[in-house]
Write a protein that binds this DNA or RNA. Structure first.
Length: 575
RNA sequence: CGGGGCGUGGCGCAGUCUGGUAGCGCGCACGCUUGGGGUGCGUGAGGUCACCGGUUCAAAUCCGGUCGCCCCGACCA
């Protein structure tokens, strides 16, 4: 691969429309160009990276026993109507009509298509289990595409679906995929963490996300500093804690109403009364399901986890009620609502149980109550884990660990789906007794193009990208200081040929540019091993190898260059 | 969906308030120079100022509309 015959339009300056490191660097390194919002061209260097990742994914999926196939991108509305997602999916699903006015959509994911295929092809338990995967371009009309390849509307994804006769077998496959994913992301040279995850719109009951650790990540995750527990912050459980001082007050003082004019938020009232936020019981009013208003109680320093609330209330959607609605139904303006005497059903976070000496809204404007004692003064309809876990919380799985928080980029997710799609779409098999049963399913995704961006977020410096060897466009960059100079050119050309014949892919910077320009571009595009050939080195009979990651250099005698470089590359691939 | 910002040679920007000759840096082409971290000098090409309409003798600039792109937010009482 020669630079002069490859399209690598590098840029000196950051593009004006890019915000994140990976977006800026991908554009500056001449790897991607935006076509429309969330839609990009993949230039030759980027495609090389994508192909590297795909190869690793294919190898590990095949090793795990999955089979590759390819489903269409366009699918007819009927299949989506059958699963119910035609209505549920919303605007993210791009729909269109063909010339006969029939409805179609572009696949944002392929449960419907694969389930349709399998139900038409499989009859017996003897044909199960199997796992089918594809690597394909997906389209989701995201509300807010952003950050280059990180959240595009069009993106490349590997999606796999497995089919089983029994729950146990499906869970076994889940573990197989879990291991395969660990291998894949390890081989891609990423620092990542599998975390327990919510199953979201896809449904199902068991799921892990694979999160690449990066401060710029969109997802908050927590992990235990002592055991293996890690979860998406939205999913993370909160361990019930014994209240300290709960039994200290034998005879609690009576509830007292205090005036708090204009003070509504916990922070305001806490400052006004000179009390810590964790002494407060915060009352939020949600609109649940059919429009019922429900009061949700959490400690003043805690935040409600909508996901947990949905589960506890047993409804699909919960939103904070608006002000007018609250005043109408509860007779109190928000800010002064409290559990005592409230005319709404109330559910409480477990941390509320047994609270004493607490501060709550008084259910009248400009007043709060102090010295509230939960057991004595009010009883919510239920106590449950309703809050968001935060750093410092005790680990829900082990005895002595505490949770740390991190940011992550989700590059993969695996789900146990169960019968959700097979039941909706009638994908069944006959068991050994001749009974018809719905097939057990799992699904497993990897964001290939996002992974490339995540790798950069995690591997870059002020000068550019630092690709891990395994997913670099090529492992070696040959850089002649002056390609026009005959002696250097001979050495370089010979090295290029020798490395190529050894199966080492090489990019040769054969441009007639100043050395400085070539060095800058080399750093920018992030090829892991740079081999510089110039008159100075050749006087000593040497070429110079330099690692992009740490700047380490090594002089190599010309005669040994090819074999030495080959072994350096092999070594690098192992890391 | 709400709020904010931007749209001027390939890229990054100034010019717009206060209408009149479209400018800078980088890049590009050519020549000389230089040759181990974006070399120096010179010459030159390249722009319907996002689009449509209006005001005006005259519009990148003022007015109206449209489109595109970027960022933030969607109510923690």
């Amino acid at each position: 691969m020669r630079w002069t015959t490859t399209l690598i339009p590098t840029l000196k300056e950051d593009p004006a429309d890019a915000e994140t490191v990976s977006h800026k660097l991908l554009v500056r390194a001449g790897m991607i160009r935006q076509v429309s919002r969330g839609i990009y061209d993949y230039l030759p260097l980027a495609l090389k990276v994508i192909r590297k990742i795909e190869t690793i994914v294919r190898e590990e999926m095949d090793r795990a026993g999955a089979q590759e196939l390819l489903l269409p991108i366009a699918s007819p509305a009927e299949l989506w109507q059958e699963s119910g997602r035609w209505e549920v999916y919303g605007k993210e699903l791009v729909r269109f009509k063909d010339r006969h006015e029939r409805d179609f959509c572009l696949g944002p994911t392929h449960e419907e298509l694969i389930t349709d295929l399998v139900r038409r092809a499989v009859r017996s338990y003897r044909e199960l289990p199997f796992n089918l995967y594809q690597i394909q371009t997906k389209f989701r009309d995201e509300v807010r595409p952003r950050f280059g390849l990180m959240r595009g509307r069009e993106f490349i994804m590997k999606d796999a679906y497995s089919f089983h006769a029994t729950v146990e077998d499906c869970r076994r496959e889940y573990q197989v995929m879990f291991q395969a994913y660990n291998r894949i992301f390890t081989r891609c040279g990423l620092k990542f963490r599998p975390v327990e995850a919510d199953t979201g719109a896809i449904g199902g009951t068991l799921s892990h996300e694979f999160q690449v650790l990066a401060d710029s990540g969109e997802d908050a995750i927590v992990s235990c500093n002592s055991c293996e527990y890690a979860a998406n912050a939205l999913k993370a459980e909160v361990k019930p804690q014994r209240l300290s001082g709960r039994n200290l007050t034998e005879s609690a003082p009576p509830v007292e109403k205090v005036s708090t004019p204009g003070k509504k938020s916990v922070a305001e009232v806490a400052e006004f009364l000179g009390l810590a936020p964790d002494r407060f019981i915060k009352t939020l009013v949600y609109k649940a399901g059919e429009g019922e208003l429900v009061a949700v109680l959490v400690r003043g320093d805690h935040e409600i986890n909508d996901l947990k609330l949905k589960t506890v209330l047993g409804c699909e959607n919960v939103t904070l009620a608006d002000e007018q609605e609250i005043e109408r139904k509860a007779g109190v303006p928000p800010g002064y609502i409290g559990p005592i005497g409230l005319r709404l059903r109330a559910v409480a976070d477990q941390a509320i149980q047994g609270m004493r000496g607490a501060v709550t809204g008084a259910n009248e404007a400009n007043a709060h109550l102090v010295e509230v004692d939960q057991e004595r003064d009010f009883t919510p309809s239920a106590f449950a884990d309703l809050r968001l876990a935060t750093a410092g919380d005790p680990c829900p799985r082990c005895d002595h660990g505490a949770l740390e928080s991190h940011r992550g980029i989700e590059v993969g997710q695996i789900f146990y789906l169960g019968k959700k799609y097979s039941e909706a779409m009638g994908a069944t098999y006959l068991d050994a007794e001749g009974r018809e049963r719905p097939i057990e399913m799992g699904c497993y995704g990897i964001g290939i193009s996002r992974l490339a961006a995540a790798a950069i977020e995690q591997n870059h410096d002020g000068n550019g990208i630092i690709w891990p060897f395994s997913i670099a466009p090529v492992p070696v960059l040959l850089l002649p200081i002056n390609y026009k100079e005959e002696k250097s050119r001979d050495v370089i050309d010979r090295l290029y040929a020798e490395l190529s014949s050894r199966g080492i892919a090489v990019l040769l910077d054969d441009r007639d540019e100043r050395p400085g320009v070539k060095f800058k571009d080399a750093d920018l595009i992030g090829i892991p091993l740079r081999v510089t050939v110039g008159a100075k080195g050749l006087e000593r009979g040497c070429v110079e190898a330099r690692w992009r990651r740490d700047g380490r250099t090594e002089d190599i005698p010309v005669a040994e260059a090819a074999s030495r470089i080959e072994s350096l590359v092999r070594e690098g691939m192992k890391l």
